[in-house]
Design a protein around this nucleic acid. Sequence first.
DNA 1: ATAATGTGAGCGAACATTCACACACGTTTT
DNA 2: AAAACGTGTGTGAATGTTCGCTCACATTAT
Lengths: 193, 193
Amino acid sequence: MKTTKRQKDIIDASIELIAEKGIQELTIKNLSKKIGIVESAIYRHFKSKMDILISILSLFRESKEMMNKELSALEADYTEKLKQMLQKRFTFFSSNPAIAAVIFSEELFRNDRRLSDFVYKIMQYNQKVIIDILENGQQIGEFRDDVPAKELAFMITGALRLVVTQWRIADYSFDLQEEGRRLWKTIEILIQK
Amino acid sequence: MKTTKRQKDIIDASIELIAEKGIQELTIKNLSKKIGIVESAIYRHFKSKMDILISILSLFRESKEMMNKELSALEADYTEKLKQMLQKRFTFFSSNPAIAAVIFSEELFRNDRRLSDFVYKIMQYNQKVIIDILENGQQIGEFRDDVPAKELAFMITGALRLVVTQWRIADYSFDLQEEGRRLWKTIEILIQK
DNA sequence: ATAATGTGAGCGAACATTCACACACGTTTT
DNA sequence: AAAACGTGTGTGAATGTTCGCTCACATTAT
């Protein structure tokens, strides 16, 4: 079930649409207009609109998994690992703003279990990765252990989400990576023993 | 322009609808069904659906302002002020889950400037209040000042939002206030000098 | 009697989706 | 080589649904 060229076109166009004007602009009509075919032709390549969204999310999950493989192969201390991870995520969102729009709109998916499960799982997974790094770092005495890793992770993930969200609301008007670097500086200090 | 009894009914019903099944369920049809009148009757009391949403947000803003008046009247150190503030917000969301659904769905309002501005301003205001407390506390040496207040605020607000969001996604299945208390314990330790 | 409120029918737009049909190919059959 | 056929892709019209909203008319409250 590999994706055909046309399917890739559709996914790309979808991502562009979402990045430009938000997920609400992703309609079959807009999509077909953007590609230059008629609405019904979309259905030659995807069973439903939801399938398109799922494909986008899968794409994200894949790149997420790759990110994490690189991360665990990394020979470095946990501080460095955490830093790399956050940096990678900021870089990713920076060049894929549409994904952020999809990932962070849980509310829109409330009526569709398939989608909301998908989003929720990605969210849980991300958090778990951070918690693991933190706990490992705590155990070997690299991070402070007077606060639970779970709450720390909440603050880190929460801050990341908030920064990205504001970046989108502000129409990408500031440098997300730069803001990410600033955030990291603070996190780094806070988690130190 | 005070709100009539019927207007209050409508707002209450809206909030209930949103709390139950998310903002997507807030339609004029569902609303009228819930109240027990016919769809068109809604328009005797509100000019448009957007006006209903604006009213809900106004309600939130008012209670927010009241919260803050209480807070600044409080004779206490900044740690206590911050604690009170977070606690109040968790308590508020705990008994008004619908507001969280509205406040945290920026994506849905992207195509409506009136609404998105409203939400954005509330968000900015909240953040400013926290930053102020943090900065004041830093100046008198109550909080650590080796990290910028802005980034700290990002982490605090972000964590709050994330916890509330997960609580909603998980269908209110855990005790939000309890989780809030846990989060505070961590924040308190982190900001200490 | 007047104003406030409710009713029921309906409008226009947006939306995802379906369907019968057409055309361009490459492959297979005669 | 010509005819038949399958497959992938696109077209245009149509369907069914939902939505916010309007309007002429009726009922109720003051």
